[in-house]
Amino acid sequence: GETKIIYHLDGQETPYLVKLPLPAERVTLADFKGVLQRPSYKFFFKSMDDDFGVVKEEISDDNAKLPCFNGRVVSWLVSA
């Protein structure tokens, strides 16, 4: 499998796309960081919350699996 991750960088209009050679349910924050090489950023991901619906959730645990929608991951990188 392959996972497409779209990421928005510090408010830039056009998002970036990276592809990881892993199925979406196995991709972790560490996998994503390894491709990006951007150490001083906070990582937020499109996520579903039972109370609020669609939210941007910050993930900082490198072992955390990334939230996935239709085989895609959507993220926002914010300068720390």
Rank of each mutant, 00 (worst) to 15 (best):
G11F: 05
S75I: 07
F44V: 02
G11I: 00
E57K: 15
T28W: 01
K56G: 04
E13V: 07
Q37K: 14
Q12A: 11
V74K: 00
G71Y: 04
E58L: 06
P39L: 06
F32G: 00
L36C: 05
F43K: 04
D31E: 10
C68Q: 10
K56Y: 15
L66S: 02
L77A: 00
V54K: 04
S60W: 11
K56L: 11
F43L: 03
E58A: 04
F44D: 02
K56I: 13
E2G: 04
I6P: 01
S47L: 13
E25F: 00
Y16I: 15
Y7D: 00
L17G: 07
L36Q: 03
P15T: 12
L66Y: 06
V78D: 03
Y7K: 02
E2R: 05
A24M: 06
I5P: 06
G11H: 07
T28A: 03
V27P: 04
F52Q: 15
E13Q: 12
S40Y: 14
V55P: 01
S60P: 00
K56A: 09
S60D: 09
G53D: 14
D31A: 11
F69M: 10
D61T: 00
L36K: 02
F43G: 02
D62E: 07
D50W: 07
F44H: 01
D49A: 13
P15M: 02
L29D: 00
D31N: 04
S79D: 13
A80E: 14
D61I: 08
F69V: 11
L29N: 01
I6L: 10
H8F: 15
D31V: 07
C68A: 12
P39F: 00
L20G: 04
V35E: 07
A24Q: 12
L36V: 10
L20M: 03
L29I: 03
A30L: 05
K46Y: 08
T3S: 04
E13M: 12
R72I: 15
H8Q: 02
L9Y: 05
Y16D: 03
D31K: 09
L9I: 14
L17M: 15
D31H: 15
L77D: 07
D61K: 00
E25D: 11
A30R: 13
Q37L: 10
S75N: 01
H8A: 02
D31L: 02
A30C: 03
V55M: 12
K56P: 06
I6A: 05
Q37T: 12
I6D: 05
V54M: 10
V35D: 01
E25V: 01
P39M: 13
A24Y: 08
D49N: 15
V18L: 12
Q37V: 11
T28D: 08
A24K: 10
D50A: 10
F32P: 03
S79W: 03
L20K: 04
A30S: 09
I6H: 11
